[in-house]
Measured scan of single mutants.
Amino acid sequence: NRRVIAMPSVRKYAREKGVDIRLVQGTGKNGRVLKEDIDAWLAG
């Protein structure tokens, strides 16, 4: 149960899109989840 590193704005964006942020692979520094990662996850 790893802790997800993401800015609050990215967490909010994921919530609005209905994405469980824990399932998204972060590509930022130290595995940080970026807004682009959410978009990529939604695109498949």
Rank of each mutant, 00 (worst) to 15 (best):
R3I: 15
E16R: 15
W41Y: 14
R11P: 01
V33R: 02
V19A: 06
V4T: 04
V24H: 01
D37A: 01
K12A: 08
V10N: 02
A14Y: 01
I21F: 04
R3L: 15
K35H: 06
A40M: 12
R32L: 08
W41G: 03
T27E: 03
D39M: 09
V10G: 01
N1Y: 04
E16I: 11
R32T: 06
A43W: 12
V24D: 00
R11Y: 05
L42S: 08
A43K: 12
R15D: 05
V33D: 00
G26S: 07
R32E: 10
M7H: 15
N1C: 06
Q25N: 14
N30Y: 13
N1L: 04
R22K: 10
G26C: 03
A6Q: 02
D37W: 00
V24P: 05
D39E: 10
A43Q: 11
D37R: 00
K29R: 13
G44K: 13
V19L: 07
A40I: 12
N30W: 11
V4R: 03
K17V: 13
V19D: 00
E36L: 14
P8F: 04
G44R: 13
K35D: 05
N1E: 13
G31W: 07
G26H: 04
A14T: 02
T27P: 02
G28L: 03
E16V: 12
N30T: 08
D39Y: 05
N1F: 04
W41L: 07
V4F: 04
L23A: 11
R3E: 15
G28A: 07
G28R: 03
G18L: 11
R2V: 15
V33E: 00
I5P: 05
E16Q: 12
K29G: 09
L42K: 07
L34N: 10
P8T: 06
R2L: 15
L34P: 00
Y13I: 04
R11Q: 05
S9C: 14
R2H: 15
A6L: 02
V10E: 06
A40L: 13
D20N: 12
R22P: 03
D20W: 07
D39S: 06
A14C: 05
R11L: 05
A43I: 12
R11W: 08
V19E: 00
T27Q: 07
K12P: 01
E36T: 14
K17P: 00
I38L: 05
V33I: 14
G26Y: 03
I5N: 11
D37F: 00
K17Q: 14
A14L: 01
T27C: 05
Y13L: 05
M7W: 15
D20T: 05
V24K: 01
